Simulated assay, not measured.
Amino acid sequence: MPTIHIYEAALCCDTGVCGVDVDQSLVTVTADVRSLQELGADITRHNLANDPTAFTGDETVRAFMHTVGSKGLPLTVVDGVTVATGAYPTKEALHDLAGLGTPATTSAERLDLGLTQKTAGGCCGGTGCC
């Protein structure tokens, strides 16, 4: 099975539900990655703020950061090959990249992951950061 790494800009919250502005792309990619992991896919997200060594330890990512910088993130790499930059791949694209075919998860199933339920009172105990 292919190994997928998603390298993201510095974020305090990977779910997208921190603070007052919800980032729907983060909510979506969080649900998509969790869904793929549950199916056995080898997929990992790396946040520049929390996992900087992942950015320096991979030559593909290091070269990308040197050339484009963090403004080009997110960066998606599959088995050492860059497959997407500047935006998160869709759920369908991630399934294809993982070799899993077409996804069956509906938007209603995304709600079951609890990703949109943390908005009341903020997430992470009110610190504003997940």
Rank of each mutant, 00 (worst) to 15 (best):
S107K: 13
L73Q: 01
K118L: 14
R45W: 05
C13S: 09
C129L: 03
L11Y: 03
H46E: 03
Q117P: 06
E109K: 09
A63V: 12
K91G: 10
A31S: 13
P74V: 06
G114T: 06
L113W: 12
L115M: 12
V77R: 09
G101E: 05
D14S: 15
V78H: 02
D51F: 08
D32Y: 10
G125K: 05
G125P: 03
L11G: 03
N47R: 03
A87E: 11
T56G: 12
I6V: 09
V61D: 00
G101F: 02
I43G: 00
L97V: 00
I4E: 00
L111Y: 13
A108R: 12
M1V: 10
L100Q: 02
F55K: 03
T127R: 11
D51C: 10
A49R: 09
V68E: 12
I4R: 06
A9K: 13
G114S: 05
T116L: 15
F64L: 09
G125D: 05
M65F: 00
L113Y: 13
L11C: 07
R62Y: 05
I43A: 04
V77P: 00
P74C: 07
K71G: 11
Y88E: 01
T53P: 09
G114C: 08
T60M: 08
Y88V: 02
G16I: 00
I43R: 07
V27I: 09
G99Q: 04
G69K: 11
T90L: 10
I6A: 03
L94V: 01
D112W: 11
S25P: 08
G72H: 01
D21M: 15
G19T: 06
L97K: 02
N47Q: 04
Q117E: 14
T67H: 13
V22H: 13
S35I: 06
C123R: 14
T3P: 01
G19P: 04
G80W: 05
D96Y: 00
G69T: 04
A108E: 15
D112Q: 14
A84L: 03
F64K: 02
S107E: 15
G128Q: 04
A63Y: 07
A9F: 04
R62E: 09
G16T: 00
L36A: 05
T106L: 05
N47W: 00
T60Y: 05
Q117F: 09
T76R: 14
G122A: 09
L94Q: 02
K91E: 10
V17A: 10
V61S: 02
L36H: 05
I6G: 00
R34F: 11
G19M: 06
E59Q: 14
A49Y: 03
E109W: 08
T56Y: 08
I6L: 04
A120N: 10
D32R: 10
D51S: 13
A54L: 04
G40T: 07
T116V: 14
C12Y: 04
A98Q: 00
Q24T: 13
A98S: 02
G16R: 03
T119P: 06
P89K: 15
G122M: 07
T116R: 15
G122T: 07
G122D: 07
S107T: 15
I6P: 00
V81C: 07
T28N: 15
G128N: 05
G101C: 02
I6Q: 01
G40W: 02
E109N: 11
A49D: 12
T15I: 13
T127L: 12
L115R: 13
A84Q: 07
L39R: 06
G101Y: 00
